[in-house]
Structure formats: structure tokens, C-alpha cells
């Protein structure tokens, strides 16, 4: 089972290493990990997607809380959160395929951000499922390259996981 954890950490060198090392030493699996700035310059926010049962999740949360540089650990319930991932995909685009690719892009409310004679770069934003679906559909044309950010997530409503 997949869980999403939001972390507020001190924005210092070595913090990411501590977190990655903890996952590797304790044998936890990271599905994806994103790091970015927050509104406060000395704090960063991470979103980690972990695979495991409730016992694993509890240990992950507790062990992360023990790291001195980790200020806050919150599990984000997917039912009460919005989550987004961004992917840019370089897809082979022969002349005869272009219109179909553009149709798919339009249905997914994605964007074409680069065009060249043999390929296009598509930008898609959405939930992991939506990105997955888009990738599946583009595969038939030939995906030459893909970069995904991993997801970021936030609880709906007034609950704050702030720095």
C-alpha cells in the first residue's frame, strides 16, 4: 500500500542524505521523493511516497521524527488531499501521428512545449494516475525520453502542514 508523507525540514546541506540514508538502512522503499523551497528560506518541504503496510508507515514516521533536522512529519490521506505531478515527455511524432498526439494532449489538457521535425515535447500536469494514463497512450508513438517530478501533495481545507 502506498502512503504519502509530507516533511518540513531544515534547509541545510546534508539533510536529504540523512533522510535517504534512513530509508536505505531501515529497509523502507521510497517510490518517489520531491524536495522544494517553502515560504521560509530556512525550511524546505519534501513529499515522499512510501510503499508498505501500517506498521512500516508507523516506523517510517517515527524514525523520520527522530532526525534532528526534520521539523514536521505528516501523513497525507489521499482522500483528503490534492496531489500533482508534472511530466515532460519527448514523443516520436511522425507526420501522420501528429494530429492524434495533439488530440490526446488536448483531451488531457496537457501542452506541447516543443516541436521538431521528428518529435514533440509534451508537458502534462495532474495526479499520478492521470500522468500514467497519458504515458500509456503516448507509448504507441514511441517515447524517446521522459522526466517526471514525482508528486507533491497538500491537504484540502484549513489543515496546514506549514513550515
Amino acid at each position: 500500500m502506498k502512503h504519502t508523507i509530507a516533511l518540513i525540514v531544515e534547509n541545510k546541506p546534508g539533510v536529504l542524505v540523512r533522510i535517504a540514508a534512513l530509508f536505505s538502512r531501515r529497509g523502507f522503499n521510497i517510490d518517489s521523493l520531491t524536495v522544494g523551497a517553502t515560504d521560509k528560506p530556512d525550511r524546505a518541504r519534501m513529499t515522499i511516497s512510501v510503499d508498505g503496510d501500517e506498521v512500516v508507515l508507523e516506523q517510517v514516521t517515527k524514525q523520520l521524527n527522530k532526525l534532528i533536522n526534520v521539523i514536521r512529519v505528516s501523513e497525507l490521506d489521499p482522500a483528503e488531499s490534492v496531489e500533482r505531478e508534472l511530466a515532460i515527455i519527448k514523443v516520436a511524432a511522425k507526420k501522420e501521428d501528429r494530429s492524434e498526439i495533439m488530440q490526446i494532449v488536448s483531451v488531457f489538457r496537457a501542452k506541447i512545449i516543443d516541436v521538431s521535425p521528428r518529435s514533440m515535447i509534451v508537458e502534462v500536469t495532474g495526479s499520478e494516475d492521470k500522468v500514467e494514463a497519458m504515458v500509456r497512450l503516448l507509448r504507441q508513438f514511441g517515447i524517446k525520453e521522459m522526466a517526471r517530478t514525482g508528486k507533491v501533495s497538500m491537504v484540502r481545507g484549513s489543515r496546514i502542514v506549514g513550515p
Binding site: V55, E58, Q59, K62, Q63, N65, K66
Partner: peptide
């Protein structure tokens, strides 16, 4: 004193 020990 270490919550991570409980249930480990």
C-alpha cells in the same frame, strides 16, 4: 523514551 522503539 524513544517512540520509535514502541511497536518496532
Amino acid at each position: 523514551v524513544d517512540p520509535a522503539e514502541i511497536g518496532k
